[in-house]
Amino acid sequence: MLEARLEQASILKKVVDAIKDLVQDCNFDCNDSGIALQAMDNSHVALVSMMLKSDTFSPFRCDRNIALGINLNSFQKVLRCAQNEDILTLKADDSPDVVSLVFESSEQDRISEYDIKLMDIDQEHLGIPDTEYAATITMPSGEFQRICRDLSALSESVAIEAEKNAVKFVCNGDIGNGAISLRNHSSVEKPEQNVNIELSEPVALTFSLKYLVNFCKASGLSGSVKLCLSNEVPLLVEYELASNSYLRFYLAPKIGD
């Protein structure tokens, strides 16, 4: 059986809010290492990969592999019934028809219990290769969100150009053009504003802003975001969570499309 207790319901609420416009139905694969999710979006241009390690939960118990096939719209409806600070416990049998959610208020003596009916989802499992990226950019997640939003008002696409010590986001639209450059920036006083660019070779790739704006819905999960780029392979956008957990998005580049 599965029993996984989260100190704050907000983590799961934010994860589901961040991915539900990309993926409708997906399996939450539970085993003794934690709860994982991997799904392509409907257009097969983007892939979502989430890992909530067992250490994210306290306690965490999962005796055998269980796939919880959940409609994310339904999941979001139920998660909205939880307060952000509620303690959330997920429970399921070994061959479950439903997943149970219990929300407990730490301040009030309130316990809410919900069940979500599960679905059989035949999902293709894809292997994500270990990749040495040519450029890895770490920057404030809010800054990346603002850049994507601003540029999406001008254009459908953005070119991300990484070179030594600088990264440039460039768009060309019908009404005009835009470009935002960020340089390596390190501050002891405000580390949350740090920008770090690691580069083995310069990279320039173009991506659909519609998807990037969508990924940025995860900004509330982490103060920083990591962008990993290599020529001709999907961009990796990673939000790191506590206990080595993560929410990752992959997006195929546009090349002469």
Binding site: A46, L126, G127, P234, A252, K254, D257
Partner: peptide, 14 residues
Amino acid sequence: SAQQARLEGFFKAV
């Protein structure tokens, strides 16, 4: 599309 092929080609089916 070409983008689909690039994404699917990167992730090998297990």
